[in-house]
Nucleic acid binder design. Structure first.
Length: 300
DNA sequence: ACCTACCTGTTT
DNA sequence: AAACAGGTAGGT
């Protein structure tokens, strides 16, 4: 389900609610979804904040019962971390009421009342059960492999054309679509935003990643950033399962230019959007706005 | 650089 | 009945 804009939207929806809250109760309804390091438990730990890296969410946690033990300043240092990857259909949902668990609810975390807040449940729901949560000591050498090998954050201020060029050089023989989907090349793009960024950059997804001119790399760099920023501003793309922490849908599905539009007219030029399979994923592009050979009529 | 597996639900 | 779906890990 969620790519960078969706994960970031979820993070923003959860941040003000989770920050500073202490875990009161944990219900693991489906064993195997939560991978716990030996000896660690969630109970009694404070959620210090919530961060994002690529499509991962990271919640640094304080020591168990730091509050009741009488918190010294250094008790607020993270001693564990909850890491979450939602894969295709994972959802993190806030529920003020103690509703009965639904069929595909796998974990329920009850957060104790704060000074000005009532208790609330944080629910992990995942129809296809591909997603995972990890409870790890912090610092740890045991981070998920996919998180360790993650490429640069496209929305970081130091992400630029030179960095993207360097990353694409490692996959110069594969097509652009496959390169952008590779999380070690660049973090956070999935099937929707890879297609949308290539359209915005006027680049054909079948082009070899090593064939881009400096000008084309610069265009792609800006296209990636612009598409992600717009999608976050629209709170993500809700096609099937994606919702934020308050169960609210995004609106970027109304702004898609190529993804899911095979057979329809390009909004820019009227040409019929094509689709093929690349890197095992359906890939949509406009043959006129994204010419295979440089020189025709790329997007401004 | 491909393929298959992991799952369930929806659409053709 | 079969194909397909916002993803990635693992094997060839």
């Amino acid at each position: 389900m969620p790519e960078l804009p969706e994960v970031e939207t979820i993070r923003r929806s959860l941040l003000p609610v989770l920050t500073g809250r202490v875990i009161d109760e944990v219900q693991v309804l489906t064993p195997g979804v939560l991978l716990e390091s030996a000896g660690l438990t969630l109970q009694g730990r404070e959620m210090l904040t919530i961060r994002r890296r690529g499509k991962y969410l990271l919640i640094p946690l304080g020591s168990p019962d730091a509050l009741t033990a009488g918190r010294k300043p250094d008790n607020r240092a993270a001693s564990a971390q909850l890491i979450i990857h939602l894969r295709m259909t994972g959802q993190l949902l806030l529920q003020p009421d103690d509703l009965p668990a639904e069929k595909h609810t796998h974990i329920r975390i009850k957060l104790a009342a704060g000074r000005e807040s009532s208790p609330i449940w944080l629910i992990y729901h995942d129809t296809r059960r591909f997603g995972r949560l990890w409870l790890l000591p912090d610092p740890t050498g045991d981070l998920p492999a996919g998180l360790v090998s993650l490429g640069p954050e496209p929305l970081d201020p130091d992400f630029n054309a030179a960095l993207l060029a360097e990353r694409l050089a490692g996959r110069r023989r594969s097509n652009l679509k496959a390169a952008l989907l590779d999380q070690s090349v660049i973090a956070g793009l999935g099937n929707i935003y890879a297609d949308e960024a290539l359209y915005a950059g006027g680049l054909c997804p079948t082009r070899p990643a090593g064939s881009l001119s400096g000008e084309e790399i610069a265009r792609l760099t800006e296209a990636i950033r612009a598409v992600l920023i717009n999608a976050i501003a629209c709170a993500g793309t809700s096609l099937r399962d994606y919702v934020d922490g308050w169960n609210k849908q995004g609106r970027f599905q109304n702004c898609l230019q190529v993804y899911g539009r095979a057979g329809l007219a390009c909004r820019q030029c009227g040409q019929i959007i094509k689709s093929i399979r690349l890197a095992g994923r359906t890939t949509c592009w406009c043959p006129s706005c994204q010419p295979e050979k440089a020189g025709s009529s790329p997007q401004p």
